Amino acid sequence: MNDNPFERLLALKDTMTPWALRAVVTLKVPDLLADGPLGVPELAARTGTAPDALHRALRLLAARGVFTEPEPALFAPTGLSRLLESGHPMSLRPWLDLDGAIGRGDRSCVHMVEALRTGSPVHERAYGRGVWDDLAADPALAASFDEAMHHRAAMLAPALAAAYDWRTVHHVLDAGGGTGAILAELLRSHDHLRGTLLDRATAVAAARAAWGDTAEGRRCTFVEGSFFDALPAGADVILLVNVLHDWPDEHATALLRRCREALPPGGRLLVAEHVRDATADAGLLELDLLLLLVYGGRERTLDDFRAVASPAGLELTEVTRTKAGVSLLAHSPRVTW
């Protein structure tokens, strides 16, 4: 680490690199360089940009190691830029594309002072409507959100399939399960399971199209709906993966109350999320702040999870840290006499 405090602050205040990175991803420059080096004139022509302006952004990103510049005004890919290509299995493109839902949310950061003063999300200040209304009004935006969530879910799926004794489960409801990457993996890994996928219409349609005709899809019911309404009955396990952190406490409790109502005697709720504690790294703390700005949500401690679950009639009974870094928090209906 650089010990010069002035230079450390200069590095921390950098605004150009994050936005230059998002800009070239939005313009699909990493895709254009996937097959090898290209010069600035061709890149500018194919992206509809001004050559000098594009060159300045690419020079900065080359200095940061995202690309290389083997000759003046000639740029080539690197291991970092490969992760920004659309076709990479772990592509970060959906998270940086300024035309997509996640990049659109990032723009809310310019209103951070207001968020700090009010403690409320500022997405509506930036776009005239809250994030969920924004997605509902724009199918292309909703599709980009579903794509980003699918990439994240696909990375978590193997760890969640291995982190619980699914042999004891008959039917799992994945509430807010997006395009079903995690539920599909559970059904694929445990062929005795039946599943129900519940989410917004665009996500459920994408799931049905992607894997509805597979062996897993034939053991799954696809339901369009909201987890703030009565949930489908019949599942002995309800799964919430990275759902609660999108919501403030009162909404989280309302959602958990719906889960409690749908659970049969002996049923369990499994919540898969990061648990914030004193060792939380900067990446999780960054996400915690972004959740406030865009969604009004938060990353929670174990005490926070207990605080939102208890009024819903649920008791946190077990915590398992998965290989993917998230924890699986098992809840049982609280017995009242």
Results as ranks from 00 to 15, higher is better:
L10G: 13
M16W: 05
T17Q: 10
A20C: 14
A23F: 05
V25I: 14
V29N: 06
P30Q: 10
D31Q: 08
L32I: 09
L33I: 11
G36R: 08
P41T: 11
P41G: 07
P41F: 00
L43S: 09
T47C: 09
A50R: 05
R56D: 12
R59Y: 02
L60Y: 01
L61V: 09
R64S: 12
A73E: 15
A76G: 14
S81N: 08
S86P: 07
S91K: 07
R93L: 15
W95F: 15
D99F: 03
I102V: 15
G105Q: 09
S108Q: 04
S108V: 08
V113D: 13
S120H: 14
S120N: 13
P121E: 07
V122D: 03
G130W: 07
V131E: 02
D138T: 08
L141W: 00
A142I: 02
D146P: 03
D146G: 07
H150L: 12
A157H: 08
L160E: 01
D165H: 08
H170Q: 15
H170K: 14
G176L: 11
G176H: 06
G176W: 02
G180W: 04
L183R: 06
L186S: 05
L187P: 09
S189W: 00
D191I: 12
H192V: 01
L193Y: 02
R200W: 04
V204F: 07
V204Q: 09
A206H: 10
R208F: 01
A209S: 12
A209I: 04
G217Y: 03
G225P: 02
L231W: 05
A233C: 02
A235N: 10
A235P: 05
D236I: 05
L256W: 10
P265S: 12
G266A: 04
R268L: 06
A272G: 09
A280C: 02
A282M: 09
L285W: 01
Y295I: 00
S310T: 14
L328N: 00
L329F: 02
H331G: 02
P333W: 03
